[in-house]
Design a binder for these strands. Structure first.
Lengths: 246, 246
DNA sequence: ACCTAGACTTGATCTGGGTCAAGGGTTCGC
DNA sequence: GCGAACCCTTGACCCAGATCAAGTCTAGGT
C-alpha cells in the first residue's frame, strides 16, 4: 500500500520551493542541508505527533493524507485540518504541538529539523512570505469549514466534504470543475464524522441517501462517482454560480 | 458612544509595530507615509467590507469590535472571526474580500492603502514575519472554534465564548486568570448565536441557565460577572488544569 | 406621558441527528 | 475454511436544540 517514494514528486509537492530549503530544487546544495532535511514514512493510523509533544520537525506532506485533530477529555474529537500532499505541517516558532497529527492513509513527509528551519526562515524572506500565503489559505479553509460546522445540515456537510475532496483530487486532472468526477474517498466513515461534527451512523445514512437520490454513485464503500459536480455543489449549499439557467 | 480617538492607544494597538509601517512608532517618519496610513471610524452595525468587494485597505482594529461573517444564499450566517483591538484585517495579496466585515460596536481602524502596504511587505521581512505570527494565531483560534462548533453542547458553547471574551478583556487588567472576572458583553444575543452556530433563543435560554446555576451573574443584559473563572472553564469543557483535586 | 422599535426572555411544540442495538461484508491470520 | 477484527449499514427510539409564538424591558423620539 506504501507507494514507492518518488523524489521527483517529492520536489513537486514541496510548497516551499526555495533553493535554500528544498534540496531537490537545487541539487548542488544538498551537501549543506545534510541532516536538516530528510524523508520520513508513516503508516495509516499512526500518530505522527501528539498534542503537547515537542516538535522536532516541520515539513510538508509528499504523499498520503494526514489530519489534525483535537480531543476533549471525554473523548469527543474534532478534526480541524486535513493535510493533503503539499500541505505544510508544524508551526515555526512554537516548540510544542497543539494538535494530534494522525496519518489517515500511509504518509510520506518531507521534514526539516525545526531549529535550523526557523533560523533559515528569518534569513530568507522568500520562505516567510510563502509560508504566510500558505497559512492564509489554511485560514480561509478553516473559516469555510466553520460555516459548514456551524450552519449546514448533515446532508449538506457530506456534500461539502465530497466536493472538497473531489475538487482537490480532480484538479490534478482537469480544469473547470464540471460534469463527472471520480475519486477514492481517503477517509473512513468515522474520520468523515470527526471532520463534520457528526456521528458515523449519520454519515453512513446520508451517504446512502445521496446514493439513493443519484447525487453520487458508490462502488464498494470508497470509490465515488459524481455524475454532476454542479448538482453536488448545489446539495452542499455552496451554489458556485450553479443553477443560473432554468 | 464613539470614544475620542487616542492616537497613543492607536499605536499600542498596532500589531505591526514597525517603524516603516506604523507612523506612531516613529513619529519622524510620518511625512513619508502621508496618504498611505490613515484612521477611519465606523458605526456599530455598519458593514466595513462586503464579501466580493475590492479591498482598498488593510489595517488593524484600534478600538471596538468587528466580526467576519459568511452568509449562505438562504440567509444562514456564521461568524468566522472576531476582531478585537490589535487584530489585523485584510489579506495582503488578495484583491477581493471573501467575507463580510461588520462593526459589532463602534470601531476605529488604523488603515493602510493595500498596494503600498503589499510593496512594503515584500521589502520589509520583519512585517511578513509579524503577519505570519498573527495569522498563525488566528488559525489556532479558528481551529479551537471548530472544536466548539463541531462537538460542544449549547451550554459549553456559551461558556466557551464567555471565557474567550472574559480572558481577552481581563488579560489587560490581571495575570493568572483566576477567581472573579467582570466584563461587558460586546455582542448581542444574535451575534453570539451567529458565532456559536445556535439560534438566539437557545443563547438566551443558556445564559439564563448559567445565571440560575450561579456560573455567571448578570446586571442588565450585557454586564457579566464571573465569580469563578475556573468554574466557567469547567463548564466550557476546556478544563484548563482545573478540577485536579477532589 | 405615550409610542415605537430593538433587544431580550420564556413557553409549547417539533424534528434532525444522536444513541443504542443488531446485523452484513471483507480481509486478515491460522 | 473459520474465527476475529474492522468497517459499514440499517432500524427503533430519544432528546437537545430549532421553530413558532407570545410576551417583557429599555431607550429614544415626539
Amino acid at each position: 500500500m506504501n507507494e514507492t517514494l518518488d523524489l521527483t514528486n517529492g520536489c513537486e509537492s514541496c510548497p516551499i520551493k526555495h533553493r535554500a530549503v528544498c534540496a531537490r530544487c537545487d541539487a548542488d546544495e544538498l551537501e549543506t542541508l545534510d541532516g536538516i532535511k530528510y524523508y520520513r514514512s508513516f503508516e495509516a493510523g499512526q500518530t505522527l505527533i501528539w498534542s503537547g509533544d515537542r516538535m522536532e520537525f516541520v515539513g510538508s506532506v509528499v504523499s498520503g493524507i494526514a489530519s489534525l485533530t483535537q480531543t476533549m477529555e471525554d473523548g469527543r474529537t474534532q478534526m480541524v485540518g486535513l493535510l493533503l500532499p503539499s500541505d505544510f505541517v508544524g508551526r515555526p516558532g512554537r516548540e510544542f504541538a497543539t494538535y494530534d497529527v494522525v496519518a489517515t492513509t500511509d504518509v510520506v513527509m518531507c521534514c526539516f529539523r525545526r531549529k535550523p528551519f526557523e533560523t533559515m526562515m528569518v534569513e530568507t524572506p522568500h520562505v516567510a512570505q510563502r509560508l504566510l500565503e500558505m497559512t492564509l489559505d489554511e485560514l480561509d479553509a478553516a473559516r469555510e469549514w466553520m460555516l459548514v460546522l456551524g450552519r449546514k445540515t448533515a446532508r449538506e456537510k457530506i456534500a461539502s466534504l465530497l466536493s472538497i475532496i473531489g475538487r482537490r483530487d480532480a484538479s490534478l486532472k482537469l480544469e473547470g470543475m464540471v460534469g463527472r468526477i471520480v475519486f477514492d474517498l481517503p477517509l473512513t466513515r468515522e474520520a468523515m464524522a470527526d471532520y463534520l461534527g457528526l456521528t458515523l451512523e449519520t454519515v453512513s445514512r446520508q451517504m446512502s441517501a445521496l446514493k439513493r437520490d443519484g447525487v453520487i454513485e458508490l462502488e464498494g464503500k470508497r470509490h465515488v462517482t459524481v455524475p454532476s459536480f454542479e448538482r453536488l455543489m448545489d446539495e452542499a449549499g455552496d451554489d458556485a454560480d450553479g443553477g443560473m439557467m432554468a
